[in-house]
Design a protein around this nucleic acid. Structure first.
Lengths: 130, 130
DNA sequence: CGTTACATTTACGTTAACGTCAAGCACTCT
DNA sequence: AGAGTGCTTGACGTTAACGTAAATGTAACG
C-alpha cells in the first residue's frame, strides 16, 4: 500500500503543484501537514483536502472561499445547516459562472460581428488615430 | 452643436468613467487631452479613442494591447500590414475567448453534476475535514 | 473677501496566488 | 571532511487597473 505520509516532493509530483504552493496553502491554513523535525509530512487528510482545494479552484472558488467551506466541516462535520450553506455557495458560484459565460457570449458575438462586417472596428481605429 | 472640447467631468458623465480613469489613461498614453492652463480639455479625437478603448475592454483586451493597436495607426494610418496585424490580434483574442468559454462550460457542467448527483462534493468535503 | 465646487499632482494602497531569491540546516555518499 | 541534494524559513517581487488620500490651486458666486 501507499505510505500514509508523503514528503513535499511526493505531493508535488502526485498533484502537479510546486512546493511553494503547498507551503502557501499551509500558511493560509488550508493544509496542516505533520512535521518530522523540520520537514513536512502530508497525511491522507491533507491529500483529501488538497483534492478538494484543486477541485474548488477549477470551479472558480477563491482560496478564501474554499478555506471557509473546509472550516465549516472542521468545526462541525454533522451540521446540516453547514451542508446547506455549502450548497448555497455552490449555487451562487454556478450562477456567477453562467452570468460570466453569458457576457462572454455577447463579447464573442460582437467581436465576430465586427470582424465579419468588414472591419468596422478597424475603421473606428483609423478615426481614433485620425 | 456639441462643443468640440470637453472637461473631465463632461467626459466622465458622457462615458461613465471616473476622473482617475481618464488621468490614468493619459498617463498610459492612451489619451492626449489639451490643456487650458492646468486643466484638461478632451478633444473629439480623445473621445473617439476612448470609445475604442472601452470597446476593446469589453472584448477583454488589456490596456496595453489597446495602446499598441492605437499606436500602430498613430504612426501609420494607411499601412495595410498594420490593419492585418489588428485583425490578427482580434482573431487571437477571439480564439482565447472561445477557449475560455469552453473551460467555463466544462466547469459549469461539472459543478451541476456534483450538485445534481446528491452532493458528491459535500461528501468529499466531509472526508477532507474528517 | 470668504466659501463653495472642481481641478491638479503625487504617491501609496488594493487584490490573488503564488514566483523568486537568499541563507542556512540535515542527510547521505564518498 | 567535503560535496551534493533536498528541505526549511523569511521576505520582497509580480500584475492590472485603477482607488484613495493629502496638499494645493483657481474660478466663480455673492
Amino acid at each position: 500500500m501507499t505510505n500514509d505520509l508523503m514528503t513535499i516532493r511526493q505531493m508535488c509530483d502526485a498533484f502537479d503543484v510546486t512546493p511553494r504552493t503547498l507551503r502557501f496553502y499551509e500558511a493560509k491554513e488550508l493544509l496542516f501537514p505533520q512535521r518530522d523535525g523540520t520537514r513536512r509530512l502530508f497525511t491522507r487528510r491533507d491529500r483529501a483536502r488538497l483534492t478538494l482545494i484543486l477541485r474548488g479552484k477549477r470551479f472558480g472558488f477563491s482560496l478564501e472561499d474554499i478555506r471557509q467551506i473546509l472550516d465549516l466541516y472542521d468545526r462541525d462535520g454533522s451540521n446540516h445547516a453547514q451542508t446547506l450553506r455549502t450548497f448555497e455557495l455552490a449555487q451562487q458560484r454556478l450562477a456567477q459562472m453562467e452570468a460570466q459565460r453569458a457576457e462572454l457570449d455577447v463579447a464573442i458575438a460582437d467581436l465576430k460581428a465586427e470582424l465579419d462586417a468588414g472591419s468596422a472596428m478597424i475603421a473606428g481605429l483609423r478615426r481614433a488615430a485620425e
